[in-house]
Nucleic acid binder design. Structure first.
Lengths: 104, 104
DNA sequence: CTTGACACCTAGCGACGCTATGTATAGTGT
DNA sequence: ACACTATACATAGCGTCGCTAGGTGTCAAG
């Protein structure tokens, strides 16, 4: 997979990964890999900044969890995050449809 | 359509637009708009640099045409360009499949 | 004779995925 | 005991590339 193919789509993918329940950053990375069948095997330096950005935008909220002794930051969708995800799914359908119409 | 959604995909779209025959830059812009049903209404400052880049990479070749009096640069796919297009169509299918698997 | 479509061009900006690097803990193997 | 891997977080800086904004010039219509 070419680098930068994700550009502009990653936020939606991360939101979708958190749609079924809260998770910490590392788990988001693994879940993206799992759901995509290995296609999205993203470095931490890609995903952590996304989580920070989405939280800064109010689409995610987080809190530290030290239940297991290991410190983890657990993220969850806010209401606005869930709404943004719906918009992004719509946008994706439009975009994908347009690309396929052009590619033929 | 969000800006930058195209990032990493535009080259393939331009190649696809030229797959059915040579065209000049402005016509490529119009054809992208037409095929996409208006979704891809791209400014010239986006498309012209792409054409230059693809030509520099050997995927397109061009020559000036002044048949109508108006100067136009007409682009056509090279063999390598056509082969690149095939690869990009494959990549798109993989990418789109992975995105849809994640979005659910 | 101005307006708008056609047709080309490029400098510079901004966004963002990625590389590289750093820290620290838990588990596994030898 | 010691090394190594996986887990888990963080961020500075780079490179790419779509876009904005500005420029040149031709042609048709009102």
């Amino acid at each position: 997979m070419r680098a930068d193919t994700l550009k502009g789509h990653l936020d939606g993918l991360v939101l979708a990964t958190l749609a079924e329940g809260p998770a910490h950053g590392y788990a988001v990375i693994e879940e993206l890999k799992r759901r995509s069948g290995g296609a999205f095997d993203l470095p931490e330096g890609t995903v952590y900044p996304v989580l920070h950005r989405l939280e800064a935008e109010g689409l995610l909220a987080s809190e530290w969890s030290d239940g297991t002794g290991r410190k983890r930051r657990v993220y969850r969708l806010t209401r606005r995050g869930r709404s943004s995800l719906h918009g992004r799914r719509r946008d994706w359908k439009l975009f994908a449809g347009a690309v396929e119409a052009v590619l033929g």
